[in-house]
């Protein structure tokens, strides 16, 4: 019973981790980054504003 339980919980955690990693990779594969996409969605924005928001949200970390 304990073995069955641990096996199931392990599988569950693995699925959540894989789902999150897949989403992260999908975002990385975008030709741009989330902040630029968000800010330039409906109007042109100053590059310095984009850079400031990128560093605030941690999207300026090395890729």
């Amino acid at each position: 019973m304990i073995r069955y339980l641990l096996q199931r919980i392990g599988q569950a955690l693995l699925v959540v981790w894989l789902a999150y990693t897949a989403v992260f990779l999908a975002v990385q594969l975008l030709p741009s980054d989330p902040v630029t996409i968000f800010l330039t969605a409906d109007s042109a924005v100053d590059q310095s504003a984009i850079d400031a928001m990128k560093s605030q949200y941690g999207y300026d970390q090395p890729c």
Binding site: V16, A19, Y20, V23, F24, I37, F38, A41
Partner: peptide, 15 residues
Amino acid sequence: TQDVPLVQGLVLLTA
């Protein structure tokens, strides 16, 4: 609104 962090959070929640 293409709010990527929020979408990521929602995917994690749903999963």
